[in-house]
């Protein structure tokens, strides 16, 4: 509880003794409270400037004409944004982000739940299995990118197996878009090359969802499952009708955490494939980096960054607000 506040709240108490005691306490608390605020202040000020202030500054740059090496803060209105949405590369980025996010989250959840349920069957060597599924989480996306670039190299890698069974894949060098309907300047559909990147990302990140689901499963009392079995439910139905619905809050957390990772992804793609031919594996993060720091189109890069931020905020802000409410 919060002593300072509660002493204020209950100040209508009549008994003199209680009142004086509270007063004494309140006085002592106030000084320490100022201390507490003073210790928190530097962090708050730093984050105020470096998060909120800098976002504001980036927003300002995105509305300027600073598209050369020399800063030019003259007002351009929403021109940079208009240009972006008409830009072939950015349209491709939006398409890629959409499908990357969908496949990535879908796979992380399906594989995560499956593995967690399997690991929860009192199997032998559980911790060994767990460690193997978790360890990629400790790696850098750059390492993952470098290794999977070699593994899914179109002329080698897994293809040596696949070609033996008559399947051939060009993996991340494939420029096919399925179905490839014309939309704006680009072909809309699933870029085949993205699948390679999704595999690498899923390999790296499923550990997170397995850990989350496993913790969730362990929190469900065995009696709940036992009761369902007593009612004659098959093992499959126990999971489908009883356990999975109880894991829903975890799924929401996993979706949001994975969505924000996916929407701002940069290093994995930069290390593994780069933008790719026809930008089949390009994402806003890579575009922003290249246009800003390789091309000096600062205003353009700032506009991409703001769009990325907004897309992440759509997921994160409601999540933060709701988890704060749950906290109180």
């Amino acid at each position: 509880m919060e002593p300072a506040r509660s002493s204020v709240d209950h100040s209508t108490e009549t008994e003199y003794k209680v009142e004086s005691e509270k007063k004494k306490k309140k006085k002592a608390v106030t000084k320490d409270h100022w201390m507490a605020v003073a210790f928190l202040a530097p962090s708050v000020i730093l984050l105020g400037i470096f998060v909120y202030g800098f976002i504001g500054w980036t927003g300002f740059v995105s509305l300027s004409n600073w598209n050369t090496l020399v800063p030019d803060f003259s007002f351009a209105g929403i021109e940079n944004y208009v240009n972006l949405f008409q830009d072939y590369r950015f349209q491709a980025d939006l398409r890629n982000t959409l499908f990357f996010t969908l496949f990535f989250i879908g796979a992380v959840i399906v594989v995560g739940i499956t593995l967690a349920i399997l690991l929860d069957q009192k199997i032998r060597q559980e911790s060994l299995f767990r460690n193997i599924f978790f360890f990629p989480m400790a790696l850098s996306f750059v390492v993952t990118g470098v290794v999977w670039q070699w593994l899914l190299n179109p002329s080698t890698g897994v293809n040596l197996f696949l070609s033996k069974i008559g399947l051939e894949s060009k993996w991340y060098t494939d420029t096919t878009i399925i179905p490839g309907v014309e939309w704006g300047k680009i072909e809309f559909g699933i870029p085949v090359a993205l699948i390679a990147v999704v595999i690498a990302a899923v390999w790296q990140m499923t550990g997170f969802s397995v850990a989350m689901y496993l913790a969730g499963l362990r929190a469900i009392p065995e009696e709940v499952r036992e009761a369902a079995r007593m009612d004659g439910a098959s093992e499959f139905m126990v999971y489908w009708k009883v356990v999975l619905p109880m894991l829903r809050p975890i799924t929401i957390s996993v979706v949001i955490i994975m969505a924000h990772i996916s929407l701002k992804i940069f290093d994995l793609i930069y290390a593994m494939t780069g933008p790719g031919a026809n930008y089949v594996t390009d994402v806003p993060g890579v575009y922003m980096f290249e246009t800003t720091f390789r091309g000096n189109y600062y205003a353009n890069g700032a506009a991409i960054a703001i769009i990325m931020l907004l897309s992440v905020a759509i997921f994160i802000v409601p999540y933060l607000i709701s988890s704060r409410k749950g906290d109180a």
């Binding site: 928190l40 962090s43 708050v44 984050l47 470096f50 998060v51 909120y52 202030g53 800098f54 976002i55 500054w57 980036t58 740059v61 924000h260 929407l263 701002k264 940069f266 806003p284 993060g285 922003m288 980096f289 800003t292 600062y298 890069g301 700032a302 991409i304 960054a305 703001i306 990325m308 931020l309 992440v312 994160i316 802000v317 933060l320 607000i321 704060r324 906290d327 109180a328």
Partner: peptide
Amino acid sequence: DVLFTAILFGMFIPYQSILIP
């Protein structure tokens, strides 16, 4: 608590959005 939520937001932002400044 509001301040804490505001602090937390900082861990989710794409860092591209603060890189230029």
